[in-house]
């Protein structure tokens, strides 16, 4: 109930700020949108990504480095087992030889198979649509790793040091893209999106799929986008254009 009122209030203030003026408007919107620290997330939001493959360059890995830096995913030089929350895929059309590129990561499904198979309930979907692992209850069985059609999950095989305070990680648990919950809860966009916009080619957009006024919802309405493996009926929160 309060969550509903707060979400409405935020939208109202956002509208007011947009009317208030252009010069200082931008900062006003950011301030007005911030979820207070005490406020719980709500199902009125559904966070998602829109990725335009036509802007994503084959040789660019800005999103991957952005993610690795944010969460300190330093590897052990063992690509088979090193943690990987986002990776780049190049797709070649067999007929035309056209190569398109895209980042692959947790698709934050509405009906996530990883959640279905988890024996402890550690794999769960937050009310605002972000699919997470509660590492406090994860027993490391890795059913979810197998169940994910996108190969988006990793298992931590070795003891870690120098974790970031906002991204705890440790041996014996499964992990995957958190859509940077720690940033989203402060109304920042995920690190990969920020890296793509500042160092890459601006192929990634983050936003609230449930808010018809959000930039991402408008873009999705205006132009067709696709889900990877839409035949599975998972209703992914990550959508792709031009693939």
């Amino acid at each position: 109930m309060t969550a509903e009122i707060n979400a409405k209030r935020r939208r109202l203030i956002k509208g007011a700020a947009a009317v208030a003026g252009l010069g200082s408007g931008l900062q006003l919107v950011e301030l007005a949108l911030a979820k207070s620290d005490e406020e719980a997330v709500s199902a009125l939001q559904r966070w998602g990504l829109l990725i335009d493959s036509s802007k994503c360059a084959t040789n660019c890995t800005a999103c991957v480095s952005g993610c690795n830096e944010e969460h300190n995913l330093e590897g052990f030089d063992r690509p088979e087992t090193d943690a990987q929350w986002i990776r780049k895929l190049d797709l070649t059309d067999q007929q035309t030889q056209h190569v398109s590129s895209l980042p692959m990561l947790c698709q934050h499904c509405e009906n996530p198979p990883c959640v279905d198979v988890c024996p402890t309930g550690a794999s769960f979907k937050r009310d605002d649509g972000i699919v997470l692992v509660d590492k406090h209850t994860c027993i490391g069985c890795r059913y979810c790793v197998i169940a994910c059609p996108y190969k988006a999950r990793s298992f931590v095989h070795e003891s870690l040091h120098n974790q970031k305070s906002y991204s705890p990680r440790g041996k014996g648990t499964v992990e995957s893209c958190t859509l940077c919950v720690h940033r989203v809860d402060k109304d920042l966009s995920p690190a990969c999106v920020e890296a793509c916009n500042t160092k890459g080619n601006g192929a990634m957009m983050f936003g609230d799929l449930n808010d018809a006024d959000s930039e991402i919802a408008k873009q999705m309405k205006a132009a067709p986008s696709r889900q990877v493996r839409e035949d599975l009926g998972l209703n992914t929160g990550v959508r792709y254009q031009n693939i």
Binding site: D37, E38, E39, A40, V41, D128, H136, S165, V181, V184
Partner: peptide
């Protein structure tokens, strides 16, 4: 605090483990 943060995205500082540290 752990459950409030992980499941509900509550980010108050008072009982946060990071703040203890």
């Amino acid at each position: 605090q752990r459950d409030a943060t992980v499941y509900d995205g509550v980010r108050t500082k008072k009982h946060s483990l990071n703040e203890c540290v």
